[in-house]
Amino acid sequence: MVHMNRWVSIREKIVKNTLTVFALSSLLFLFLIFIFILIEGLPLFLKVGLKNIIFGFKWAPTKGYFGIFPMIISSFLVTFGALIIGAPLGLSCAIYLAEYSGKRLKMILKPALELLAGIPSVVYGFLGVIYIVPIVREYLGGSGFSLISTSIVLGIMILPTIISISFDSIMSVPRSYREGSYAMGATKWQTIFKVVLPAARSGILASFILGMGRAIGETMAVIMIAGNALKIPTNITDPLRTLTGNIALELAYATGDHRLGLFSTGIVLLIIIMALNYLANFGIKRRI
């Protein structure tokens, strides 16, 4: 009996240690990702200079120019464009689902919308090229591979994220808030606008920021539809190149300093994404 107890306690110890190692593995992976992108990208910052990369206007890596300023601007442009299209649609959809739709409709629509989050981004990009690009070319001019087309595709792509998280935060506003408002004689809309939405605002904000994160990180759909020109777009019908697009377009071809330049692009992207995630987490935590 004593013998067995000892075996059991050893086993418990082994299990605990193994699980600790498992749990630490995700930290290890995060560390590796950071280290390897930094190791590859940083030398170029030292060689060419931070200013010439982040604020440089010219990207011609085979000739020694590594400016990614236009791509940083373009990444933010498409992201805000996506938000302008996705945020109002997504939020009103969430409000409708949470406050107006019947229980049965809620049961069908919510999961249906979440299922759509699983459609691969390349499919969105493909449909954008087939159906949105020609319309933009016909009615707005330009080639159609443009800021506006990319924003529309990304805006649709982030809808499920925005709807699902906004919906959850609207639903988590206590019922008593609404009842109090109705008791004061407010209409349903006044209640939603003045009471429910302000109470849910940090969650809604978080949904927007997570949507932005998804839009700024999207790659394949963007290279299909953005046109990838290096200049900062001056018009909504101009083509543009994002940070992600720059990496994906040239990675397979790049060698030497050119490859380092793409990893520098990766570092900048990583920093932007981490900042956005931190903001979003902050928003979600405050809600709880």
Binding site: A60, A229, Y253
Partner: peptide, 29 residues
Amino acid sequence: REEGSGTRGSFEELVMKNEEIDDSIMVQD
């Protein structure tokens, strides 16, 4: 075409001579 492409390399050499391809032109891979 994008930087590093052989077709672009030949095009730059044979057609563009010493001129640079403009930044506002679309790029495909």
